[in-house]
Design a protein around this nucleic acid. Structure first.
Lengths: 222, 222
DNA sequence: GCAATAGTGTCTCTAAGACAGTATTTC
DNA sequence: GAAATACTGTCTTAGAGACACTATTGC
């Protein structure tokens, strides 16, 4: 019984996942998702959180972990039968300096690159694909995008998350109206952030409403 | 490592789940979801399908099994640590005569009743709740409702599935237009079914399009 | 002043919902 | 004929998307 964690963030305009390079067979040299064995008497989500903390240095309480799915095809690990519960976590960019306290060095790699052929070990390509798809879907109707950002953010930063994760541009004006007019979705701080030239943008925090209804749709321009 | 299956159907205007009465402690006398241990080298979905077939007599190939989630809290089974992968299956009503070839007799019980306090064993109340919620959600944007029906069905029968699972009435006219005008969602057979008085309804089969976009929404009248 | 970014106004179009109207059956 | 069920027409309204416009900053 193991857990694997798809940890996503946005870095340099790209959707990235946390991965560890495998130093031994099988799949030596390939990348693997952070993960490990569930301890006796340990809850599954705690195991996932423990693996995440070992690889990053994120404070355990602040991360939302969402169960993705369980992968248990015989032969997915050539050494022995292994069933793994996969989890999804989303982190703001600066929260994770490269490497944690763990033996292996975890690093960020673009998901698009990782999803290419022959990059990932085991069935982690499938797991990562499912994780990215879950994140893409949840952007439509939840506030998961805010988990990619610091506690205070501008609407443009929020929109940038959508654009990077969905991979296509959104209309800035319509996006602004949508998220600010949806009751309780984001709440204005009153403060502004001047980022170089242009009118300073208002800073927002996450609102009390976690769901977005009617949803934002990614089919528009796609 | 076990699997549990939430098997749903619509009977007598109620959403029902397949359950087995427990004959021994723990939770003797309570109801449990069909399930059992995953065999060595057996794929998880195959284990779920095997348990389903043992309890019902459904032909294995014809059932869609969708993974729900994995439940592994320590103490969820007082006897020993057990991690269970839950699956969702939806069956048309007449396909399952009561009881299967199995030792225990599986029967249908209304989900609303089962979700009351003290009816279900282990954490099966949580699992059933999650299964019902998944079905409700997927009615919005997939053709899962057709899995509750025979291969040929009328639009009124399809609407009845929505009304029972969502628990509130829908406008017959708007529903009819929505599902028939969504390209490829249902396909007309040309034949009609005269069910007593009233104009005979046209019979449809499932179309090639499994998703419904824009979705049907359950928030309208709710 | 101009460029850049933030945010608003407004028009069009799609589709949901309400509900009236028509079609086809049994009695 | 009436009652019942299946379907269609049509009006109103919400909201998405396109895109023009205003606001506020740095240079």
């Amino acid at each position: 019984m193991t857990v694997d964690v798809v940890v996503l963030t946005v870095r340099a305009g790209e959707l990235c996942a946390l991965v560890v390079r495998r130093g031994e067979a099988p799949y030596k040299g390939r990348w693997a998702l952070p993960g490990g064995i569930v301890a006796d008497g340990e809850d599954l989500v705690d195991a996932a959180r423990r693996e995440l903390v070992e690889e990053t240095s994120v404070s355990p309480a602040s991360v939302r972990l969402e169960q993705l799915a369980t992968y248990g095809a015989p032969g997915r690990d050539p050494r022995r039968r292994t069933v793994s519960v996969a989890w999804l976590a989303v982190l703001p960019r600066p929260a994770v300096p490269e490497g944690g306290t763990h033996r292996a060095r975890a690093t960020w790699r673009p998901t698009e690159w990782l999803l290419g052929r022959g990059r990932l070990a085991f069935d982690h390509r499938t797991i990562l694909r499912d994780g990215v798809e879950r994140a893409r879907a949840k952007l439509e109707y939840t506030n998961i995008a805010t988990a990619f950002l610091e506690p205070e953010f501008t609407i443009a930063q929020l929109r940038a998350v959508y654009e990077v994760v969905w991979g296509h541009p959104l209309d800035a004006g319509n996006f602004h109206r949508k998220v600010t007019k949806t009751d309780g979705f984001v709440s204005p701080t009153g403060r502004r952030q001047s980022a170089g030239r242009g009118r300073p943008a208002e800073l927002f925090t996450v609102g009390t409403e976690e769901s977005l209804y009617p949803p934002l749709t990614r089919r528009s321009l796609a």
